[in-house]
């Protein structure tokens, strides 16, 4: 555990909680892609199956349970409790274009051809692109609420911090996991355009809106 890893995890946790609180307090999931949230729930479910097979630490187990619990709570709020506020017309990204290729790739390129390992690989690949329905939705409506941009910033920052964590681990532990690193770079790159808008607009007190 190093500082980048810990702050990355906390940033991830902050993102998840910001989103839950935003929906809960405003009693609305307007502007939130339910499809991205389903993909994240799928990511955590397929990645954390090792909860049943191995114990790493109390921290590890607790965080996994919190992430999974929050992911399903978010999906529940969007598709059940506040379904009337869900903007399905703008959430039109075709998720099968992500899930099918990612599924194929995880069968082809993995560390070990075993069910758990393939599901872990699937979750890593899927996480790297799971935000695309959300970004697509923002590009379609041309704007995002400020609180939604804070959520996205924390979520992007988390994977960027993990990149520094992997650099750290490579130098000090000689450890690297090529699958996680490549997917992590892809994931972080997808946020770059958003990071730019966040810094140039949201941090200067303006609402995030894209030119028509």
């Amino acid at each position: 555990m190093n500082i980048f890893r810990l702050t990355g995890d906390l940033s991830h946790l902050a993102a998840i909680i910001i989103l839950l609180l935003k929906i809960w307090k405003s009693r609305s999931c307007a502007g939130i892609s339910g499809k991205s949230q389903i993909l994240f729930a799928l990511v955590f479910t397929t990645r954390y199956l090792d909860l049943f097979t191995s114990f790493i630490s109390l921290y590890n187990t607790c965080m996994k349970l919190i992430y999974i619990g929050c992911a399903y709570a978010t999906v529940y709020l969007i598709y059940a409790k506040f379904r009337a506020t869900y903007d399905g017309n703008h959430d039109s990204f075709r998720v099968e274009f992500l899930v099918v290729p990612v599924g194929g790739l995880s069968v082809l390129i993995n560390h070990d051809f075993s069910p758990l390992e393939i599901l872990w690989t699937f979750s890593i690949y899927l996480e790297s692109v799971a935000i695309l329905p959300q970004l697509f939705m923002i590009s379609k409506t041309g704007e995002a609420e400020t609180i939604t941009t804070h959520y996205l910033f924390c979520l992007g920052l988390y994977r960027a911090l993990y990149l520094f964590n992997w650099i750290w681990r490579f130098y000090f532990e000689g450890f690297f996991d090529m699958i996680a690193i490549v997917a992590g770079v892809v994931q972080t790159v997808l946020y770059c355009d958003f990071f730019y808008l966040y810094v140039t607009k949201v941090l200067k007190g303006k609402k995030l809106s894209l030119p028509a």
Partner: peptide
């Protein structure tokens, strides 16, 4: 589990 098996990460 060893820290180096990677799955200690979230």
């Amino acid at each position: 589990k060893e820290e180096t098996d990677g799955k200690d990460e979230l």
